[in-house]
Simulated scan of single mutants.
Amino acid sequence: MSAARRRRLPDEVRAAVVRAVLCLAFTMVGLLIATLASYADSWLMTPALMAMGLGVFGTMWCLLEILISRQVAAQRMRGPNSASPMAGSRAPGGARPVPRPGGPPNGTATPQSRVPTAYP
């Protein structure tokens, strides 16, 4: 049983994931410092809480960046002027026209029943 090979993520997506992990680590360190400072009744609790708040904001920002960069990479993979997400998934010439009611009985395509594949 072989493991399915996954495609490598595009560079901009991998960079966004690295930034998100670093921001999450920064947030976790802020949480740890804030917890320890609260046990010790230290003045470091306020800056640690502010750093943790910035870290939460930054982590959410990075997660949103991951989603956007994945969508941009997926659009780039589909190609220009691609209207549907499945465009380019079939080999060219492999699709058969769908017979319409009132059309020829054998399902052959007439010039009137063909649907254009791309719009100008």
Rank of each mutant, 00 (worst) to 15 (best):
V21K: 14
T35A: 15
G88N: 03
I68E: 04
E65I: 02
L36I: 12
E65L: 04
S113Y: 06
M1Y: 07
A15K: 02
M28C: 04
V115N: 07
A109K: 11
S89H: 08
R19P: 01
S69F: 03
M50I: 15
V56L: 13
L67W: 01
V21H: 13
R19L: 07
M1D: 11
E65V: 01
L64E: 05
A15W: 00
P104L: 15
V115F: 08
S82L: 00
I66A: 10
A83Q: 07
R14L: 11
P85F: 00
S84D: 05
A91Q: 11
P116V: 10
M28W: 03
D11P: 07
M86H: 05
T27M: 10
S2A: 15
Q75I: 05
V13T: 09
M28F: 03
A16Y: 00
R5W: 06
D41L: 11
P10Q: 07
M1V: 09
Q112C: 12
Q112Y: 10
L32M: 10
A91D: 09
E12Y: 01
R90P: 00
M1Q: 13
S84C: 09
R14K: 15
T27D: 06
Q112G: 12
A95S: 14
G55R: 10
V72C: 02
T110Q: 15
L36Q: 14
M60I: 04
G102I: 02
I66D: 05
R6M: 05
M60W: 08
L36V: 12
V98R: 13
P47M: 09
L44A: 15
C62W: 02
R7K: 14
V18K: 09
L22W: 01
R14H: 09
N81T: 05
L32D: 11
S84W: 02
I66P: 02
T110F: 08
P97N: 13
N81R: 08
I68L: 03
A87L: 01
V98H: 07
A20W: 00
L49Q: 13
V98N: 11
P92G: 11
Q75M: 10
S69M: 04
G93K: 06
Q71T: 00
Q75D: 10
S42F: 04
G53I: 03
L36K: 14
R70Q: 01
G103V: 02
S38H: 10
A4D: 12
M52Q: 11
T108D: 10
T46V: 09
R5L: 11
L36C: 14
G94Q: 08
F26D: 15
A95T: 05
A16G: 04
W61T: 06
M1P: 07
S82K: 04
M50N: 15
R96D: 11
M50Q: 15
V17I: 12
R114K: 15
W61I: 01
P10F: 03
G30Y: 06
L54Q: 08
R5Y: 08
G94P: 02
V18G: 08
M1K: 12
Y39N: 15
A74L: 02
P47K: 12
R114L: 15
M86K: 03
A83P: 06
T35P: 00
A16C: 06
P116L: 10
A48V: 03
Q112N: 14
G55L: 05
A73N: 06
